[in-house]
């Protein structure tokens, strides 16, 4: 069978589908001071997965606000700097008007994912941390 670390090199999704892969990638990103990229990506997935039952409504609002505050509000944050202004104002609008939708972070997540695929993921595959692991 293919060892997991070889699978990680196939695509970002293969890497993010494996606990050890995530752990190693996070260690690398933290070293590069951009660990928030990965946390934000997972936060968006988790938010989308929240079930749409009534008791969850309050939780969703709170969570949407928490994601917005932590990753998007501060324009100097690593995540915020990688998201297009139009996407940020869309999310801000949703939060302010309490238009909470499971897909409200999808565009931002895609932008961060593209950035990881083009930038941090290829760097990770060439990094000492990955090469030493293999």
């Amino acid at each position: 069978p293919t060892p997991p670390y070889l699978k990680w090199a196939e695509s970002l999704h293969s890497l993010l589908d494996d606990q050890d892969g995530i752990h190693l990638f996070r260690t690398f990103l933290k070293q590069e001071e951009c660990g928030d990229l990965l946390d934000f990506w997972f936060a968006c997935s988790g938010f989308r997965k929240l079930e749409a039952n009534e008791g969850n409504e309050e939780k969703k609002v709170k969570l949407a606000k928490a994601i917005y505050k932590k990753y998007i509000l501060d324009n100097n944050g690593i995540v915020s700097r990688q998201i297009k202004p139009a996407t940020k104002s869309f999310i801000k609008d949703c939060v302010m008007k309490l238009h909470i939708d499971p897909a409200m972070f999808d565009q931002a997540q895609t932008e961060i994912q593209t950035m990881m695929e083009d930038n941090t993921y290829p760097l990770f595959l060439k990094s000492d941390i990955y090469l030493e692991y293999t």
């Binding site: 589908d17 606990q19 946390d39 997972f42 988790g46 606000k65 994601i67 932590k70």
Partner: peptide, 20 residues
């Protein structure tokens, strides 16, 4: 009710794969 940080952390963890 959880604090915002707890909620965020749980949300992040919930999106991760459970096991290989």
């Amino acid at each position: 009710m959880d604090s915002e940080d707890d909620l965020l952390q749980k949300c992040i963890t919930s999106a991760m794969p459970k096991q290989r």
